[in-house]
Amino acid sequence: MELYNAESFRNRDLLDAVIQKKEETKTKEHEEKQKEHVLHMRRTPEITSRPSSRMSSKQTSLQTEQVSKEQSNVTTESVAKNNVSQTINSLAVLCLAASVVLVLDIYVFLMATSDVPDGGFRNGSLLSSVKQYEDVTEVFTAFSTLVMILSSNCVLVCSMQCFIASKVIKTIDGPERAMKYFRECSSSRLVAVVGFFISFPVFLLTLMLCVVLRMKRTPALTAVVVLICGTMLGLLCMVQNIYHWYDEMSTASRGLPAYKDNNKGSDVSRDLNTLV
């Protein structure tokens, strides 16, 4: 019985030792798991914070791009609206000038082609024969008709483009659509504008011929000389303006400055002197 008791105690001690070792290993494994969990929890904020920072930077960049796009849209719309208003105003002024030239030409045509009484304006005039009178009348009729056609074409095109642009500008994206309309119809507008500037010196020639047809020698010579001088002055002004316009457009297309460094101060002082 004593041997049995001693062996049983030994077995119990072995069992206790084995159980303690198992418990110690379990506790160690549990502690290691807890440490790994803590380390994992410490690492996860860093990992999750990076995408958030990236997302925040992306959001800010997208917001700045949207704001810049909105600002650019507002600026382009305001610029387009300003350009449309300036174009409409210039076309309206041109239409008014062409209509005045048209009315004056019709009046001169009716006055020159009226019936001349016998012994009237041809006596003592520059025209010595009936054939010369008829030839001058034919030339006068051709020039006057040309002025009528060019002026009426300018009035028609300018008034039509002003009317259509005023209707288009009220729609969605109206200023941009109106500028597109002006660009697409630029060819007809160019023809109308060039025709108007051609019709003005031709109208002065018709006035000269009307003076020759309807007046006597001395007033006719005086009026013809004055009209020739006025026509030459008008042509020179047109050539000067066209030359400087072409010069400014060519320098702008090449990207050159408007003033040179040496001439800028003198040009500004000259402008101030002319304004005073």
Rank of each mutant, 00 (worst) to 15 (best):
192 A>P: 02
92 A>S: 05
2 E>L: 15
199 S>R: 05
233 L>Y: 14
24 E>L: 06
73 N>E: 15
126 L>Y: 00
22 K>W: 01
153 N>K: 02
93 V>A: 08
126 L>A: 00
54 R>Y: 10
45 P>R: 03
228 I>Q: 11
182 F>S: 06
177 R>A: 06
17 A>Q: 11
264 K>G: 03
34 Q>F: 08
146 L>C: 05
123 N>Y: 09
138 E>M: 08
276 V>G: 14
230 G>V: 13
267 D>R: 07
232 M>Y: 10
14 L>K: 13
201 P>M: 01
146 L>D: 02
120 G>K: 00
24 E>H: 08
151 S>Q: 06
144 S>G: 09
66 Q>S: 07
18 V>M: 08
22 K>G: 04
214 R>Y: 02
210 C>L: 10
158 C>A: 04
27 T>G: 05
261 D>L: 13
21 K>S: 03
13 D>H: 04
14 L>M: 08
97 A>L: 05
183 R>S: 13
148 M>E: 01
162 C>H: 02
259 Y>K: 03
157 V>H: 01
145 T>C: 11
37 H>M: 08
43 R>N: 09
230 G>A: 15
39 L>F: 09
216 K>G: 04
170 K>A: 12
1 M>W: 12
103 V>I: 14
219 P>M: 05
25 T>Y: 12
5 N>F: 13
91 L>F: 12
96 L>F: 02
254 R>D: 15
194 V>L: 11
216 K>T: 05
57 S>V: 02
148 M>V: 03
250 S>Q: 15
10 R>E: 01
146 L>A: 11
44 T>H: 07
161 Q>G: 00
269 S>A: 12
221 L>D: 03
230 G>P: 00
18 V>T: 14
7 E>T: 02
226 V>K: 08
254 R>V: 10
87 T>A: 08
129 S>L: 01
71 Q>N: 12
125 S>G: 00
28 K>E: 11
106 I>V: 11
25 T>Q: 14
264 K>P: 05
207 L>Y: 01
37 H>D: 06
115 D>I: 02
72 S>P: 05
114 S>E: 07
189 R>T: 10
42 R>K: 15
258 A>L: 14
25 T>I: 12
40 H>T: 12
147 V>Y: 02
141 T>I: 10
241 N>Y: 07
258 A>H: 10
184 E>W: 07
242 I>D: 08
188 S>F: 07
152 S>D: 03
138 E>F: 06
83 N>Q: 03
129 S>P: 00
13 D>K: 05
247 D>Q: 15
63 Q>I: 14
268 V>R: 13
121 F>P: 04
58 K>S: 04
245 W>A: 08
207 L>D: 00
6 A>C: 02
38 V>T: 10
21 K>C: 01
104 L>H: 04
193 V>M: 11
81 K>S: 15
232 M>R: 07
209 L>W: 01
148 M>G: 04
48 T>F: 11
57 S>P: 00
177 R>H: 15
41 M>I: 03
159 S>R: 05
251 T>P: 09
234 G>S: 14
34 Q>M: 10
69 K>T: 12
134 E>V: 04
157 V>I: 11
136 V>Q: 03
119 G>L: 06
26 K>W: 06
150 L>I: 04
203 F>I: 01
149 I>L: 05
9 F>W: 09
123 N>E: 12
256 L>M: 15
133 Y>M: 11
195 G>V: 06
49 S>Q: 15
66 Q>H: 13
223 A>P: 06
229 C>H: 03
